[in-house]
Amino acid sequence: MNRRTLLSTAALALTLGFGTAAAAQDVTAGFIYVGPIGDGGWTYEHDKGRLAVEEAFGDKVKTIYQESVPEGADSERAITQMALSGADIIFTTSFGYMDPTVSVAAKFPNVKFEHATGYKTADNVSVYSARFYEGRAIQGHIAGSMTKTNKIGYIASYPIPEVIRGINSAYIHAKKVNPDVEFSVIWAFTWFDPAKEADAARALIENGADVILQHTDSTAPQAAAQAAGNVITFGQASDMGDYAPMPRVSSIIDNWAPYYIDRVQAVMDGTWETKETWDGIGPGMVGIGEISDAVPAEVKAEALALKDAIAAGDYHPFTGPLNKADGSVWLAEGEVADDSTLLGMDFYVEGITGDIPQ
Rank of each mutant, 00 (worst) to 15 (best):
T5L: 10
L7Q: 11
T9I: 06
A10G: 00
L12T: 01
A13F: 00
G17P: 03
D26V: 11
D26M: 02
V27Y: 01
T28C: 11
A29E: 04
A29N: 11
G30Q: 11
V34L: 12
T43R: 02
Y44V: 00
E45K: 14
H46Y: 06
D47Q: 13
K48S: 05
A52D: 06
A56Q: 12
K62H: 12
Y65H: 14
Y65V: 10
V69A: 10
V69E: 05
V69H: 06
E71G: 12
Q81E: 15
S85F: 02
G86S: 04
T92Y: 04
T93C: 14
F95P: 00
G96V: 05
V102G: 02
V104I: 13
P109W: 02
F113C: 10
E114T: 03
G118Q: 03
K120Q: 15
N124Y: 04
N124W: 06
V125L: 03
G135T: 03
Q139E: 14
Q139G: 08
I142K: 09
A143K: 05
K148G: 13
N150W: 03
I152G: 06
Y158H: 13
I167E: 05
Y171H: 11
W187F: 09
A188G: 01
F192K: 00
D193H: 05
D193T: 05
D193G: 02
K196W: 04
D199E: 15
D210W: 07
V211R: 02
S218Q: 11
S218E: 06
T219M: 10
A220P: 05
A228Y: 07
T233N: 11
A237E: 13
I253F: 06
N255H: 09
P258I: 02
Y260Q: 13
I261R: 08
D262C: 00
R263E: 14
Q265A: 14
V267S: 05
M285R: 14
V286F: 08
G287D: 09
I288D: 08
I288F: 13
E290G: 08
V295R: 06
A303L: 06
A303I: 06
L306K: 09
Y315V: 12
G320A: 03
P321N: 02
N323T: 11
N323I: 00
S328E: 04
V329E: 15
L331A: 04
L331V: 12
G334M: 09
A337L: 08
T341M: 14
T341N: 10
L342K: 03
G344R: 08
F347Y: 09
G351V: 05
